[in-house]
Nucleic acid binder design. Sequence first.
DNA 1: TATTGTTATACTCTATAACTATA
DNA 2: TATAGTTATAGAGTATAACAATA
Lengths: 148, 148
Amino acid sequence: MASEEVKQSLKLFIVLSRATKAINEVTYQFIQENNVNPTEFAVLELLYHKGRQPLQKIGNKILLASGSITYVVDKLEKRGYISRILSPSDRRITYAEISPKGSAFMDELFPRHEQQLHELTNGLNVKEKDQAIALLKKLGLSIKDLSY
Amino acid sequence: MASEEVKQSLKLFIVLSRATKAINEVTYQFIQENNVNPTEFAVLELLYHKGRQPLQKIGNKILLASGSITYVVDKLEKRGYISRILSPSDRRITYAEISPKGSAFMDELFPRHEQQLHELTNGLNVKEKDQAIALLKKLGLSIKDLSY
DNA sequence: TATTGTTATACTCTATAACTATA
DNA sequence: TATAGTTATAGAGTATAACAATA
């Protein structure tokens, strides 16, 4: 029989999972209505906010094998949202860079995404959100430190 | 430009996603080392804790189409973890029930799963976990109420 | 030799639609 | 007619391994 503290941890996991799932169901639907999947959105968001990235670096961030990155980047490039740029200094490296069309797409999409998240989380007031942010940040960092 | 409050909501979403992702990476790996995938584990957990369920009800809980449920239940049945039981009162209905072998599997697996979650969340102390549980519960419920 | 990215291939999971049987 | 579950099929997304080009 699990101790009270173990049960509490399980409870935390359950409410964490449910809250995340509830938000993700809405945001995934929103993203997919705009004809990108979560992986593609993640790549676009990365390039939109962080600028051009070597393909391999994208793979590390999104946790995708190199062959799969080629597949995703191909799809986004065919739609004109990103372009490949060869590195002049190291000719093994290819960068992906968001295109004007991709930027325009994200200019339109991202604020609505943010606004939707704002509405979705408004069950908590500003003070509660600050508390939640602090606790979740602490939790997330402590897990990374475990580095399983 | 997004308001401070919208930015705060985005921040909340980011730390929530990161904490969840960090936990899920570890637990998914643990589950897969035991040769079940997350969907199969969810079905086993449901039957283990809630008893026999009509296949359709499983589909509703796990959010899976009927054809996909057949596929998942087939796999678990072939491995001897569950069995199909025909309803005598309504012959359209088939129940899935966890088998002794499936129960033994979960008897072994679930406490380790719980213990792992306990260790993963121990960056927060008991009081902080209670706070986090209350906040996440409130958040999760408020999202469901929006019922997009 | 090691690294980057591509190609070719296979597999897992899921959805959809047509179907059977029961109600 | 409506519901439960199965079958057949197709597709998306991912991983793996072999490869070419470059460092």
